[in-house]
Write a protein that binds this DNA or RNA. Structure first.
Length: 499
RNA sequence: GGCCCCAUAGUCUAACGGCUAGGACUCCGCUCUUUCAAGGCGGCGGUACGGGUUCGAUUCCCGUUGGGGCUACCA
């Protein structure tokens, strides 16, 4: 009775989007914090838009974030099945009960008629709700229409007066005027139940204790409550979460670009960072802590900490947070995540030898301090993997096009070519030695060398980075840059962004 | 239009009537360093507005404004 059971009940239409993931995360965290159960239920009562592919995307997305479910379509459970299209008889039964009790009735109005009448109501400035036409149907007319085989849907007859009060754990008491509600459809002409009927029946049958969902459902809740009352169900607790909005302050949707959770995996987000970031939209642990691992999230999550106002999905902050996670991450782990990405870019071979793998881990360890997304490894870190990298304009302007540079690069190439031990100390000795012999500061050699070897003016410690690039390649890069410089081919590229 | 929700810097948030409204992202400056997109230090910037209640309002009440959600045989 006091057991907490929450659920995430997505419609398998399209990808798991960020908003859905946010809702799922909160419902899951609450269940975990309370030591209760978390159920995954698939609401595919939209027969036309539901797809198998979408179902897989939901599984993938949730798993990626580290959200697991105690009961669900794939794992089963005591209240199976967990896919609504497989529970049709259950809904039918409840619809019949409402029909028998006179709380629901068959409606023969066609969509066209409905639309027409709604239009009229709108024109008159009235709320465009169902006018109750078929409620007035006499038994005889009903039988005739039925006998004619006229298609119908079933509508729930809402209370005509009074108010319905919803007790919400996030928002407090919210009341709705019953006279403003229209009789809504609970069984479509197709025979499928609508969301409103199915959600109410399933939450009851599956003994969901806390209905945690996004705020867009708050307005539907009085309808659900009336359905529960008519069916004699006990009310669950409700908690309506703030919506996630795009930067234009409307509900995050396809229009905003990347709303598919898994797109962020593609972009190089770590799941723990995305999870942490999502948790921070509309919730706060109440302290200044912002970087919270899974266990900390579970330990500190409460509904009291959930805010009422919607939050904007701030990609900048998500990226920063990801960078923080990257810094702290185990290089072996990051290398695992990076391998497929690098392979896809053609930057590493299919099978990594133990030695190559070790090298990759070293590259990751050196770079992770200053990356924010895994993808940064293939852009900023491209020079570790291939000699085919661009020279950015800063490198060109500051060093590579300068007159004295080519000669120095060649001298450095000559000395490095014969270096016996290709390691940090050896490399540093050669570079500083050349600077000494030239009577210039070390920086005057270091900077051009970095520009020639990486194409950039910034990056990790030069000596450490060079150690990870084959000696032969470094020498070749130095000579190539010298040659291009002399040929006047190191001028800044106009169309390239210079900052 | 109707109903419902919301309102602390550009963004995410803390403060649940009582210190100079705290933290984070972004931006800017300084600093360390061979470089910075990393580190360290610092700075700009906020209680939407108007009324109440109160000794005292970010906080409570009302209104205004603004934003959002719902208004489907989608969920």
């Amino acid at each position: 009775m006091s057991e907490v059971r929450t659920r995430f009940a997505p419609a398998p239409t399209g990808n798991l989007h960020v908003g859905g993931a946010h809702t799922a995360l909160f419902a899951w965290l609450f269940a975990r914090y309370e030591g209760g159960e978390f159920v995954l239920r698939i609401e595919d009562t939209d027969e036309l838009r539901s797809t198998e592919q979408s179902l897989r995307a939901i599984y993938d997305g949730l798993r990626w974030l580290g959200i697991d479910w105690d009961e669900g379509p794939d794992v089963g459970g005591p209240y199976a099945p967990y896919i609504q299209s497989e529970r049709l008889e259950v809904y039918e039964e409840h619809i019949d009960r409402l029909l028998d009790a006179g709380r629901a009735y068959r409606c023969f109005c066609t969509p066209e008629e409905l639309e027409e009448r709604r239009e009229i109501m709108r024109a008159r400035g009235e709320p465009p709700r169902y006018d109750g036409k078929c409620l007035e149907l006499g038994e005889e007319q009903r039988q005739t229409l039925l006998a004619e085989g006229k298609p119908y849907c079933v509508r729930f007859h809402v209370k005509e007066s009074g108010t319905t009060v919803v007790e919400d754990l996030v928002r407090g008491e919210v009341s709705f005027d019953n006279s403003l509600m229209g009789d809504f459809v609970i069984r479509k002409t197709s025979g499928y139940p609508t969301y409103h009927l199915a959600v109410v029946v399933d939450d009851h049958l599956m003994e969901v204790s806390h209905v945690i969902r996004a705020e867009e459902h708050l307005s539907n809740t009085p309808s659900h409550v009336q359905l529960m009352e008519a069916l004699g169900f006990e009310r669950p607790q409700f908690a309506h979460l703030p919506l996630i909005m795009g930067t234009d302050r409307t509900k995050l949707s396809k229009r905003h670009g990347a709303v598919n959770l898994l797109d962020y995996r593609e972009q190089g987000f770590l799941p723990e960072a995305m999870r942490n970031f999502l948790a921070l939209i509309g919730w706060s642990p109440g302290t200044d802590e912002e970087i919270l691992d899974l266990q900390e999230l579970i330990d500190t999550f409460t509904l009291e900490g959930v805010s009422k106002s919607p939050g904007v999905f701030d990609l900048e902050k998500a990226t920063w947070l990801n960078g923080e996670y990257l810094k702290q991450a185990d290089p072996e782990y990051l290398a695992d995540l990076l391998e497929p990405i690098l392979r896809e870019e053609g930057l590493i071979e299919e099978d990594l030898s133990a030695e190559r793998r070790e090298w990759l881990v070293a590259v990751v360890d050196l770079m992770k301090e200053r990356t924010r997304l895994l993808r940064d490894f293939v852009t900023w870190g491209r020079y570790y993997f291939t000699n085919d990298f661009p020279y950015d304009n800063r490198a060109r302007k500051k060093w590579l096009r300068r007159e004295e540079v080519p000669e120095r690069l060649d001298m450095l190439a000559d000395r490095l070519e014969t270096l016996e031990s290709w390691d940090v100390d050896g490399i540093e000795r050669v570079i500083r030695g050349l600077a000494d012999d030239l009577g210039v500061s070390a920086a005057k050699v270091i900077h051009p060398c970095r520009a020639a070897v990486t194409g950039q003016t910034i990056g990790p410690s030069l000596f450490h980075l060079m150690e990870l690039v084959p000696q032969r390649d470094v020498v070749a890069r130095l000579r190539r840059a010298a040659e291009l410089g002399r040929a006047g081919k190191m001028e800044p590229i106009p169309e390239q962004d210079e900052q």
